[in-house]
């Protein structure tokens, strides 16, 4: 088993909590993990990404090569496209459809949607709306996105849920339940 994942978004959106949950589940499975993160200046509203690699064999590089990623998981549609050169020809894009506009020259949404629609293996979801429908706060949108990516991860949904339970244990049952509801909402609306 070997999955190379690029997590993308804008600084402050919370891509690292997705990585934390996948990492927790992968650790419990006894898998090898490498996860390169972005800290420092770019975190201030700039584009951020994390290279997450999980495998049953030892992993050499902390970085994923160009053309090597199995999945791009993005909390922002333009940020999903930023890492296209890293995606394998048969790789998947799982992204939020909600733009984060903090620059003047953000591309036209119609064009952006058209570019995403050109990709065969894609899941584009309004993760914030799905979080609300699931009775979870907007901060749980990243768990919706993670749920939508679960079918491509080769880690069972139950294992990811167990990871969420362990990570959110300190925050109480209610918050844990809402995050799991958000995860399932994403999973149910995924399509692989």
């Amino acid at each position: 088993m070997k999955k190379d994942i690029i997590l993308a978004g804008v600084g402050g959106q919370g891509i690292l909590s997705i990585a934390t949950v996948i990492g927790e589940a992968a650790m419990a499975e006894g898998l090898y993990i490498k996860q390169a993160e972005v800290h420092g200046m770019s975190q201030r509203g700039g584009d951020v990404q994390s290279n997450l690699r999980i495998a049953s064999q030892p992993i050499a590089s902390d970085l994923i090569p160009l053309g090597g990623a199995d999945i791009i998981i993005s909390l922002e549609p333009m940020e999903a496209l930023r890492y296209l050169p890293y995606l394998k020809p048969e790789g998947w894009i799982v992204t939020s459809s909600v733009p984060f506009v903090n620059i003047d020259n953000y591309p036209d949404m119609t064009d952006l949607t058209a570019h995403l629609d050109r990709l065969a293996n894609r899941v584009v979801l309004d993760v914030e709306a799905l979080a609300r429908e699931a009775g979870a706060p907007a901060q749980a949108a990243n768990m919706v996105l993670l749920g939508a990516a679960v079918p491509m991860l080769d880690i069972e949904l139950e294992k990811i849920e167990a990871g969420i339970c362990r990570i959110f244990a300190r925050k109480g049952e209610e918050i844990t339940a809402k995050n799991i509801a958000a995860l399932r909402a994403g999973y149910d609306n995924s399509k692989k």
Partner: peptide, 20 residues
Amino acid sequence: EPLERREADDLVVPRPPALC
């Protein structure tokens, strides 16, 4: 040889960091 890869998407623009 490099791995097979896609072209960069021409819609994508830089998103520099900014003060909060």
